[in-house]
Design a protein around this nucleic acid. Structure first.
Lengths: 230, 230
DNA sequence: GCGATATAATTAGGAGTCCTAACCTTCACC
DNA sequence: GGTGAAGGTTAGGACTCCTAATTATATCGC
């Protein structure tokens, strides 16, 4: 007998929510798109699974849990802002409780320090130790296998693909599915397609520099969201 | 005090493996690529997280665990071959034990039947019940939010993106990172770029039909892997 | 100023995911 | 017909992530 309980044993309620949602896609009059969309999602799912697996393997190897790895990497690449537990939780879409746990064990291992923030003593300022920085350096290669496969693909296609993925993330952000997205497309400093007939058609008003597709950022430290229009 | 044990409390060994791997990317002489690759991976990570979250939400709503949902959907779209536990395990990259558990609870809920296979009575033939098919129908909308965002993007870019994602999956397959991939690019019937100057440059030797980028399959029921060349 | 409320973080406890190890059964081969 | 391999199940353990309750601090209202 299986040992799980809630998902396995609870009799299924008559799914009132299921009824509401069941027709929602078919109702939109889509022109020949859904099949293609289906395929893209399936492909993303496969890649998603690859990422999870690679991260898990790194976790076993390094004796750090997946969240701990991600936290370490995040901290090592966001040195300018003083990170706090709640912020990290939002970043990774976890509850503060889960994050707190991960941070506590990183501290126990001497990879980061937790000091009360000067401006708000409820909050904790998180900082990597030297040891933590060294670990983060090694861990940053967890997706190495993906890197190697990507390295074989042509630059121009990759630039296009990046643009596509960012556009998709933007759409998800606007739909409220993603709450944190520091990408150019959702930034108040971004001016799309202002340099016509140029290799670098977009522009960043903060850096005052033209941007090519491949310059678009996924996680810009200077990102400021567009003012809510509604 | 955190309650986790291995990842949290075990002192980190001097990571012999870490040393080996640490320099592997930097050593390849890459021309201006790594930054772009980095970004693509970061974007894929974000989307990966979205997928996991959506699946989890569907799980809570439907009182089915994520694996159970994926199993149901898989069975409903692979009716032609008689599925077995081990096959599903390999499909999802799980151990047979994990899969067996999920199947057992689906059976307990009356969503599928397990009957000994006629040709091998160790094996179990899995078949959805009518109730299971109805559930699968509803569950197939778990990625609805992603569909809605995708629906806003232009067809041509999506076709390009699909091609790119499939090429990446192919590279991962050849690298051995992915073990199951029923995509055209890894199929013995696939003939890439045989129809020059055509909207549909590729060809499927099984269906004997030209294929456009958007016709490429992610999960073809007729897929047969290319013969191992080594 | 001081109490009420809100917020940052932690702790405790529980369900789910996924694994390894051990086992049973059936098949296949000699 | 026995031995080893393969399909599957069970048991048990570690990790992920959650909710709820708690503590400490900040902020707001009077």
């Amino acid at each position: 007998m299986p040992k799980t309980e809630i998902f396995n044993l609870t009799p299924r309620p008559p799914s009132p929510l299921g009824e509401e949602r069941s027709g929602s896609r078919g109702m939109r009059g889509e022109r020949s798109g859904p099949d293609l969309d289906e395929k893209i999602i399936a492909a993303l799912e496969r890649l998603s699974h690859v990422l999870r697996t690679l991260l898990w393997e790194e976790a076993v190897e390094s004796r750090l849990s997946p969240i701990q790895i991600q936290t370490l990497i995040y901290l090592s690449s966001h040195t300018r802002d003083l990170c706090r537990v709640g912020q990290l939780a939002q970043e990774f879409g976890l509850t503060p409780a889960t994050m707190s746990d991960a941070v506590a064990s990183l501290e126990a291992k001497g990879l980061l320090t937790r000091t009360p923030a000067h401006d708000d003593r409820r909050a904790q300022t998180l900082r990597l130790t030297a040891k933590g920085r060294r670990s983060a350096e090694k861990l940053s290669h967890w997706a190495e296998a993906l890197h190697e496969s990507l390295a074989q693909l042509p630059q121009t296609e990759k630039a296009q693909a990046l643009k596509f993925l960012l556009t998709l993330i933007e759409a998800l952000y606007r739909a409220g599915v993603i709450t944190v997205a520091r990408i150019c497309l959702t930034c108040r400093f971004f001016r799309p397609n202002v340099h016509r007939n140029s290799q670098a058609p977009h522009h960043c008003a903060l850096m005052d520099k033209p941007l090519a597709e491949r310059d678009l950022r996924v996680d810009c430290p200077e990102h400021e969201p567009v003012a809510a229009s509604s």
